[in-house]
């Protein structure tokens, strides 16, 4: 009984800590901004009002859904390509030596810079946006996978070889051993993908979240514009939390392992 109650209390306290500061900030915004005469900085009341009006309508289907779809497709493509290429680069020294100079170049190249190039080469369609998102998200995944694969423990590999784990079994084993680093890269890439989704939609789109926010700004619909900013923040937060859930599940062995090592040292 008491154990359950103290656990419930601890849970409530955790929620309290998590929500405390945001609630205070929103309350401050609400009070300080109330009755604001500045049309560029509308009050929170107006923004929330606009939020319900704008996003809980068919705008959701016409703009939010396409954005999410682009994000998912671009990010998914980056995951597949990044893990595959990172594996090859991490596993074979020759490939690594060949690829390193090009990688050093591309990893520092700001992804949005390819937008004008793609506009000329590919056009303004969804393909361009997908390529921009995938291109930006690729590098953190690729580089982290390559590092992780390269760093797989030698005794682990020798054990696998001695028990004749070859072919797919070996590939799976190496990827699994490298998965903590692959996840680190994927987490970083998710943030990049969201940024590029918005940027690409702002620059070259006729729908989507980025386009809608720009559209509201151009038509002086400032509460609506602010509500888009709010929605993007919430979206980023929810996606990061979802990612965390997947990572927690996939790396549950790793958390316990590192926790124990830290605890015993």
């Amino acid at each position: 009984m008491t154990a359950r109650r103290s656990r419930a209390l601890a849970g409530a306290r955790g929620v309290g800590y998590a929500l405390g500061l945001p609630v205070v900030l929103l309350a401050l915004w609400w009070v300080a901004g109330d009755g604001s005469a500045n049309i560029f900085l509308p009050s929170l009341r107006e923004i929330l009002d606009a939020f319900g009006r704008v996003w809980f309508s068919d705008v959701f289907v016409h703009d939010v859904v396409p954005s999410l779809w682009r994000l998912a497709a671009g990010y998914g493509a980056a995951l597949l390509a990044g893990v595959a290429a990172g594996y090859v680069i991490g596993r074979w020294a020759v490939v690594r030596a060949l690829a390193s100079p090009a990688l050093a170049y591309f990893r520092v190249l700001p992804a949005p810079v390819i937008i004008p190039v793609l506009l000329v080469a590919v056009g303004i369609g969804d393909t361009t946006k997908l390529i921009v998102i995938a291109f930006g998200a690729l590098w953190p995944i690729l580089l982290n996978t390559a590092d992780g694969v390269r760093g797989v423990d030698e005794v682990t590999l020798e054990t696998a070889a001695a028990y004749r784990l070859t072919g797919w079994a070996r590939h799976r084993l190496v990827l699994r051993a490298a998965s903590p680093q692959i996840f680190a890269g994927a987490r970083q890439a998710l943030g990049v993908a969201i940024i590029l989704m918005v940027v690409s939609e702002m620059l070259m789109s006729t729908d989507g979240l980025g386009f809608t926010v720009i559209q509201f700004q151009r038509t002086f619909a400032f509460p609506e514009m602010w509500s888009g900013v709010l929605l993007l923040g919430v979206l980023g937060f929810v996606l990061a939390k979802l990612f965390e859930l997947v990572e927690r599940y996939a790396l549950r062995w790793h958390r316990g392992l590192t926790g124990r090592q830290e605890g015993s040292s």
Binding site: D153, E154, V155, T156, E158, T159, A161, A162, Y163, R164, L165, A169, L173, R176, A177, S179, W253, H254, L257
Partner: peptide
């Protein structure tokens, strides 16, 4: 590595596959 060769290394912590349970480790080969 020949078939039917068993191996045990000194570094058990590195030789066992950390992401697999005890049972899965024994079962994998």
């Amino acid at each position: 590595p020949p078939a039917e060769l068993g191996i045990v290394f000194q570094e058990y912590g590195r030789s066992l596959f950390a992401w697999k349970t005890v049972r899965e480790n024994v079962e994998l080969p």
